[in-house]
Amino acid sequence: MHFQRLHDLREDQDLTQEEVGRVLGIQQTVYSRYERGIQTIPVEHLIRLADFYKTSTDYILGRTNNRGPIR
């Protein structure tokens, strides 16, 4: 599964893949595989990204178009 929203959220914050990788404690190459859908995102990384971007995991996964902050 390709995660265009991960790419878009990262670019909206003017972040590099390396910077987001540091947030997750992983290498840039691993994060790049997440964005391209080559490697499955572990649940704990998905949750951490949703918290980091102040959105829901459903938004990242494309299950909703509501990007708003979680309450």
Rank of each mutant, 00 (worst) to 15 (best):
M1T: 13
H2E: 15
Q4I: 12
Q4R: 14
Q4G: 08
R5F: 07
R5A: 06
H7A: 15
H7Q: 14
H7D: 14
D8V: 15
R10I: 09
R10T: 00
E11T: 15
E11N: 10
D12F: 10
D12P: 03
D12I: 12
D12K: 10
D12Q: 14
D12W: 11
D12L: 14
D14S: 14
D14R: 12
L15N: 04
L15M: 06
L15D: 06
T16L: 02
T16Y: 02
T16E: 00
Q17W: 07
Q17Y: 06
E18Y: 13
E18F: 11
V20M: 02
V20G: 01
V20Y: 07
V20I: 12
G21A: 06
G21E: 04
G21L: 09
G21Y: 12
R22H: 14
R22Y: 11
V23M: 00
V23G: 01
L24S: 06
G25T: 03
G25C: 02
I26A: 03
T29C: 11
V30K: 09
V30W: 04
V30Y: 05
V30F: 02
V30G: 06
Y31C: 01
S32I: 01
R33E: 14
R33S: 15
Y34F: 05
Y34R: 07
Y34I: 07
E35D: 10
E35W: 05
R36G: 13
R36P: 06
R36T: 08
G37H: 09
I38M: 08
I38L: 11
Q39R: 15
Q39G: 09
T40Q: 12
I41E: 02
I41A: 02
P42F: 06
P42R: 03
V43N: 11
E44F: 10
E44S: 09
H45S: 03
L46Y: 08
L46W: 04
I47H: 12
I47F: 08
I47A: 09
I47M: 11
R48T: 14
R48E: 13
D51N: 15
D51T: 10
D51W: 07
F52K: 05
Y53K: 02
K54G: 00
K54W: 08
K54I: 11
T55L: 01
S56W: 09
S56G: 12
S56Q: 10
S56R: 08
T57G: 05
T57V: 06
T57D: 01
D58F: 07
D58R: 04
D58W: 09
D58N: 09
Y59H: 09
Y59K: 05
Y59P: 11
I60W: 07
I60K: 08
L61M: 11
L61S: 06
G62K: 08
G62I: 05
R63P: 10
R63H: 13
T64C: 00
T64L: 04
T64E: 05
T64Q: 05
T64W: 03
T64A: 01
T64N: 01
N65R: 09
N66V: 13
N66Q: 08
R67I: 09
R67M: 02
R67N: 00
R67K: 15
G68F: 11
G68S: 15
P69I: 11
P69L: 11
I70D: 08
R71C: 08
R71G: 13
